[in-house]
């Protein structure tokens, strides 16, 4: 009995201590940044005690949710246009937007050896489906279309498009083998600086407009120390090392 009392006091004290120093931050994070964000959130929690509650998804959907009162305090966008739009519309805090990562597009297949080092597999047309993210809403989808246009292959491969609503779903189509090929984010297939599974062609940067991914503080996170700390942390060397290890430039 005594031990139960002691235990419950200890638990209560821990809970109290927890609420004093650590805050929870609600962040909307672009789907392509899922893996690095998890690593950064863990490191951030270790260093500051703040808990990051991240929602991962399509930036366009987050925009609609933020405009309609979603409780997000910061947005890690997949592009640089959405933060600007939110700033213009007064939903984000002026002067807080910055580029946290520059994305790299990769043509990827779950099959080893299927994609060659130059991406010639696209021209051969020896595949059933090519997965891309919805180019209307996802920057990686738009970059994929730019790349295909540059290669003069858009018309040829367009009938083979299957479109994921965001880059995570696009990866899922390719990862399950339902589409032999897909344009995904390098961050999705890279771990510790290496492409760990399947085969890939890293699309040269001159084929598409750089995918600048900007973060911004939202009105709901204004003046909150934990949110300020997270955004500062993202600019720091520790976070940047993680971000680079996942195949982004910064």
């Amino acid at each position: 009995m005594k031990s139960i009392v002691t235990l419950s006091i200890a638990v209560a004290l821990c809970a109290a201590a927890h609420t004093v120093r650590a805050d929870e931050i609600q962040v909307a994070v672009a789907a392509n940044f899922t893996a690095p964000m998890k690593a950064i959130a863990a490191a951030f929690k270790k260093d500051t005690g703040h808990q990051v509650q991240a929602a991962y998804g399509a930036t366009g959907k987050f925009y609609a949710q933020i405009k309609n009162g979603a409780p997000f305090e910061a947005l890690l966008s997949a592009d640089d246009a959405t933060p600007i739009k939110l700033l213009e519309e007064g939903a984000a805090v002026a002067g807080t937007a910055f580029t946290y990562a520059v994305g790299t597009l990769v043509l990827w297949s779950a099959k080893p050896g299927f994609v060659d080092a130059k991406g010639d597999v696209l021209g051969k047309g020896d595949f059933r489906k090519l997965a891309i993210a919805n180019p209307k809403v996802a920057p990686y989808g738009a970059a994929a279309v730019q790349t295909l246009t540059k290669l003069d292959l858009l018309e040829k491969v367009e009938p083979k498009f299957v479109t994921g609503e965001n880059i995570a779903q696009t990866f899922q189509f390719v990862g399950t083998g339902n589409a032999e090929l897909g344009f995904v984010a390098l961050s999705q297939v890279m771990e510790n600086g290496k492409i760990t599974k399947g085969s890939a062609w890293v699309v040269p940067g001159e084929f598409y407009t750089p995918i600048r991914q900007d973060a911004v503080m939202l009105e709901k996170g204004k003046d909150k120390p934990a949110v300020i700390a997270l955004l500062a942390y993202l600019k720091g060397e520790q976070a940047r090392a993680i971000i680079r290890a996942f195949g982004y430039e910064i």
Binding site: A58, G60, K61, Y63, A64, K129, A131, N134, K136, V137, F161, V162, T163, G164, E165, Q169, F173, N178, A179
Partner: peptide
């Protein structure tokens, strides 16, 4: 449909997905 359709116009893009697309594209 969203998970297995691949959003192909005239093949798998049904009305509910089309609405979702419109919303996503603002």
């Amino acid at each position: 449909v969203l998970m297995i359709g691949g959003n192909i116009p005239g093949v798998t893009r049904v009305a509910s997905v089309q609405i979702y697309d419109h919303v996503e594209a603002m």
